[in-house]
Write a protein that binds this DNA or RNA. Structure first.
Lengths: 231, 231
DNA sequence: CGCCAGTTTGACAGCCATCAATGGGGGTGG
DNA sequence: CCACCCCCATTGATGGCTGTCAAACTGGCG
């Protein structure tokens, strides 16, 4: 982990390809916060549990962060997947022991401590409004994932999961995107076995719903409407 | 649906049995908001989609509210279940068409419109802090449900689902609680078939994990630790 | 009494978790 | 440079679980 300054931030995230308008507002928000914000650069497989220490909220400026928990059975369950522009709450004294982990080669995160967050409404009310909007977006993201997990068949789960991922990663319809996680991560996120994930993806490829250049490079074809059993 | 005033509120919710300390803070919060709050009493199966109209956030003072969506296939999926003291976000211009529905005989809800919510940090900063805490609790609730849905076996899902429900409904360990929803609702919430829900509950009853006086009255025995395959 | 919604149980086919094995790619050390 | 190892992805085989269809039972209500 490496602390970075606001001044060095633009040099880092400017490189991020295909930034959407919504992401720019997050970068602007980060700059406007000034000294209240803490930035950090991480590398693959870094464990960033320390991010929770001072509470408040965090967000992702580049890369992908996984929020996970290890069950008594030893199984890892991924509760949330945060990508560029996504916010997440940092709850101290949470009896549930969550871990945060980087799943991309590199990631840049930002956060504000709880004490700075609660003083924000008086000092910068419009920034607080932005925080509230983003927190509601976090709720939407979790709700979407509940809908994905609620699908009965594994092919449906994977199809809707990948579809969500693609719309988040690229505005362009049908463009190839680089999956920010392994098959194992997908399995632990949707709650099915790795082998079933692999089989489901192979099945979708055969049916022409997705195309794979490499196992990590995926393009969605809008063929879902042609396959009513996937809805 | 019936509008009720703040003055009549105490007569309604005071009757709610087994109120926990956390719930009292919600009632206090409701009173302190004054004119900004809108109260409503509903009856079973009422559709309260109109609650979203002015945005902002809502919360439950008594009864149970379901947030659901109808898929193209005609299936109903329950995304969230809000009980006494639970908050939920009311997002206008959400492309996803959610419905809100009462699953108990009666329910009382409260809400603040978006315009009142965004002016709250300047007028009553400590109330806004409370809103933020509750919004984070909403995130925790959804995360917990993702963990429930992530379980592989249906008996595990039902066991952890009912366990969560009981700890939320009663502080007393092992006390019988009245389930605020039907087997169909449970099925649509955890994403399995009704018959499987029924079979799983019967299975748990045979193994001594739960006890049922009536199909709706349930008591958890802390026997889960005796059954390692349920963790 | 008949109807209806909710719950439960049975039978069965299809799907999925598990175990097992193979192949590919990137890294390290010889 | 090559051998080796490890992680990841994929495919096969199989038993067990679950979705689906069907039917019976309950309690409430007109």
């Amino acid at each position: 982990m490496e602390r970075i300054s606001l001044a060095k931030l633009s040099a880092t995230v400017e490189l991020a390809p295909g930034r959407s308008p919504a992401y720019e507002t997050v970068v602007n928000f980060t700059h406007e916060l000034g000294t209240a914000v803490t930035l950090a650069r991480w590398e693959r497989a870094d464990c960033c549990d320390s991010i929770v220490e001072s509470g408040g909220i965090g967000w992702v400026l580049s890369g992908t962060v996984l929020k996970s928990v290890i069950l008594e059975s030893g199984q890892r369950r991924i509760v949330d997947l945060m990508m560029r522009g996504d916010f997440f709450s940092l709850q101290r004294d949470d009896p549930r022991v969550f871990s945060f982990e980087i799943s991309t080669d590199e990631a840049v995160t930002a956060r504000i401590a709880h004490r700075d967050l609660i003083s924000l409404p008086v000092s910068q009310p419009d920034l607080y409004r932005f925080v509230h909007e983003r927190t509601c977006e976090t709720i939407s993201r979790l709700e979407n994932h509940i809908l994905v997990q609620g699908r009965t068949r594994s092919a449906q789960k994977i199809a809707s999961y990948l579809s969500l991922l693609c719309t988040h990663l690229s505005e362009e319809e049908g463009a190839a995107v680089e999956l920010p996680m392994s098959r194992y991560d997908i399995a632990d996120h949707v709650g099915i076995a790795v082998e079933t994930v692999s089989r489901a993806i192979t099945d979708l490829r055969r049916r022409g719903v997705v195309e794979l250049e490499t196992p990590r490079s995926l393009a969605m074809r809008q063929a879902q409407k042609l396959h009513p059993d996937l809805t």
